[in-house]
């Protein structure tokens, strides 16, 4: 089961800030899911992964809310 980070209702850059704080608690190779409904999260979570050298796995939905999966590579 992946760790889920609930950022619903939080505007950017909050979801990316919480992702940066939480990634350290994740083991290398494991994934973390960010729930975020701010429209900027759709662009900024993949951009964060590119800039920080982590893997953006993709976006799905959990209970109708966007859920972004990120895998820790380092």
């Amino acid at each position: 089961m992946n760790t889920v980070l609930d950022c619903l209702g939080k505007p950017c850059p909050a979801p990316v800030i919480e992702l940066a704080r939480a990634i350290g608690t994740c083991e290398v190779g494991a994934s973390l899911v960010v729930l975020a409904d701010d429209p900027a999260a759709a662009y900024d979570i993949p951009a964060w992964c590119r800039m920080r050298g982590q893997e953006f796995v993709g976006c799905t939905e959990i209970d109708g809310r966007p859920a972004y999966e990120v895998r820790r590579l380092s």
């Binding site: 950017c12 850059p13 429209p39 900027a40 662009y43 900024d44 964060w48 800039m51």
Partner: peptide, 23 residues
């Protein structure tokens, strides 16, 4: 950035480029 826009939507240009839209 979305927070600086009246629409609260990030720049369509930055989004289309895959650039970071906040900050």
């Amino acid at each position: 950035s979305a927070c600086a826009a009246s629409t609260l939507e990030p720049s369509a240009v930055l989004a289309a480029m895959g650039a970071l839209t906040h900050g």
